[in-house]
Amino acid sequence: MNHYETVFIATPVLSDVQVKEAVSKFRGVITENGGQIISEEDWGLRKLAYPIQKKTTGFYYLMEFTGEGDIIEKLETQYRRDERVIRFLTFKMDKYAVEYAEKRRNKNTAKQE
């Protein structure tokens, strides 16, 4: 099993319900194809570095998961088909990135408590 991290940016004209619906759709794509979600982070509405499709803001969402290599092709196909997604990035994490992500998650949970 490989570790992956994916971030997608949803269009800012969506309501919170529509963003959560999109997230559950992509979560379903991962789990239906044998993947296991490790963590999720909703970064909320943020300003984009440059305009994309004449939009200057977007809803950012990060998911860290494990799975086989073919899961990425299926996930990115769903990103491309969904008109709510304006950008996405998925990458395979090496062992150092996995360690860093674990430290970051532990730090965030310590702050919340």
Results as ranks from 00 to 15, higher is better:
E5Y: 02
F65T: 07
Y50E: 00
K74C: 03
E76G: 08
K107P: 05
G34M: 10
E32S: 13
Q53P: 00
E64R: 14
L62G: 00
R80I: 14
M93Q: 09
G35M: 08
E5K: 12
R87H: 01
T6N: 08
T77I: 09
E73F: 04
K111D: 01
K95Q: 11
M63K: 13
V17E: 15
T57G: 00
E5F: 07
L45M: 11
M93V: 05
Q78E: 15
D82I: 15
G35A: 10
E68T: 14
E73W: 04
K111G: 09
V19T: 12
N106K: 13
F26Y: 15
N2I: 08
A49I: 00
E40I: 06
T6Y: 03
N33I: 05
I37A: 06
T57Q: 05
I9V: 14
A110Q: 03
D94R: 07
K20D: 11
A97Y: 01
E99F: 05
A49E: 00
Y61N: 09
F88C: 04
Y60V: 06
T109N: 05
G67A: 12
V19E: 09
Q18G: 13
E5I: 11
P51Y: 01
L62P: 01
K20F: 10
G44A: 02
K107E: 02
P51R: 04
P51S: 09
T57Y: 00
G69W: 04
E83K: 08
G58E: 08
G28A: 11
F26V: 13
T57R: 09
D16V: 10
E102P: 03
M1T: 05
D16L: 05
G35N: 09
V23P: 14
D42I: 04
V23D: 11
V19M: 12
E102D: 02
K92S: 14
Q18C: 11
F59K: 14
Y4S: 03
T77A: 10
E76M: 07
Y79S: 08
K95M: 07
K74E: 12
T6Q: 07
K20L: 14
V7S: 01
E64Q: 11
G44H: 01
G58Y: 05
E32C: 06
V29E: 15
V29D: 14
L62Q: 09
A97Q: 09
R105S: 03
V13E: 11
R80P: 13
S24C: 13
V7T: 10
R104G: 01
F8S: 01
D16E: 12
V98N: 02
K25D: 13
K74S: 11
Y61A: 10
K111H: 06
T57I: 00
G35P: 12
M1G: 08
E76A: 06
I38E: 03
Y60Q: 06
M63Q: 12
R80Y: 06
I30G: 03
M1I: 06
K111S: 03
M63I: 15
R81F: 15
I30L: 08
E73H: 13
A10K: 05
R80W: 10
L14Y: 11
L89C: 11
K74D: 07
H3N: 11
Q78K: 07
A110V: 02
D42T: 05
A110W: 01
G35W: 08
E102A: 06
Q112N: 12
H3G: 02
E40W: 12
E5H: 09
D16H: 08
I71L: 14
Y4L: 04
K111T: 06
L75A: 07
S15F: 08
G58T: 03
V85Y: 08
